[in-house]
Simulated assay, not measured.
Amino acid sequence: MIAPSVTLTTTGHPVHPSRRVDFARFSEPIVVEHKVWIGANAVIMPGVRLGYGSVIGAGSVVTHDVPAMTVAVGVPARVVRAITDDDLATREG
């Protein structure tokens, strides 16, 4: 599931300014595995893999891979917990 205003950006630019003189850029694929949920206004950066069943919190900026069956939130996004069978009995995360 992908909520409103999510950005999946596969193109970036070099950090060093001398490499940007000629508008240098790079592209890396984003991999979204099955049953991932990406919250509203999240930004997924180039080269990131979102593991099976993971949840990305609203407004998060994902700069690194997120393991399967985890919840990641924040700027930059960090894994805050695993998704377990206890989540079958509750609405909240």
Rank of each mutant, 00 (worst) to 15 (best):
I2D: 04
I2S: 03
I2N: 07
I2T: 07
I2A: 03
A3T: 05
P4F: 13
S5G: 03
V6F: 07
T7N: 11
L8H: 04
L8W: 01
G12S: 15
G12D: 15
G12C: 06
G12V: 07
G12T: 11
H13D: 04
H13V: 02
H13Y: 11
H16Q: 09
H16W: 04
H16A: 09
P17W: 09
P17Q: 10
S18Y: 05
R19W: 14
R19F: 07
R20Y: 06
V21Y: 00
D22Q: 12
D22K: 05
D22T: 01
A24N: 12
A24P: 06
R25Y: 12
S27P: 01
S27G: 03
S27Y: 04
E28C: 02
E28V: 03
I30C: 01
I30R: 06
V31C: 03
V32I: 15
E33V: 00
E33Y: 02
E33T: 00
E33H: 01
H34E: 14
K35C: 09
K35Q: 13
K35D: 15
V36L: 03
V36G: 05
W37H: 02
W37R: 01
W37T: 03
W37C: 01
W37K: 00
I38L: 05
G39L: 10
G39A: 09
A40C: 13
A40E: 14
N41A: 07
N41I: 02
A42K: 00
V43W: 00
I44Y: 01
I44A: 05
M45Q: 04
M45W: 02
M45I: 01
P46K: 03
G47Q: 08
G47V: 09
G47R: 09
V48K: 05
V48Y: 04
V48W: 07
R49T: 15
R49H: 06
G51Q: 11
G51Y: 06
G51P: 08
G51M: 06
Y52T: 08
G53P: 04
G53C: 05
G53R: 02
S54D: 10
S54M: 10
V55Y: 04
I56Y: 04
I56E: 13
I56R: 06
G57F: 09
G57K: 04
A58R: 04
A58L: 10
G59L: 08
G59P: 09
S60V: 06
V61G: 13
V61T: 14
V62Q: 12
T63N: 12
T63R: 11
H64S: 14
H64M: 14
H64I: 06
D65T: 11
V66L: 13
P67L: 13
P67A: 10
T70C: 14
V71Y: 07
V71R: 03
G74R: 13
G74M: 13
V75H: 08
P76I: 13
P76N: 13
P76F: 11
P76C: 12
A77S: 01
A77I: 02
A77D: 04
A77L: 12
A77H: 07
R78E: 15
R78D: 03
V79R: 04
V80Q: 07
V80Y: 01
R81C: 07
A82N: 11
A82I: 00
A82F: 06
I83W: 11
I83P: 08
I83E: 09
I83G: 02
I83D: 12
T84Q: 02
D85S: 15
D85W: 03
D85T: 15
D85L: 15
D86Y: 13
D87N: 05
L88M: 11
T90P: 01
R91Y: 05
E92S: 12
E92Y: 09
G93R: 11
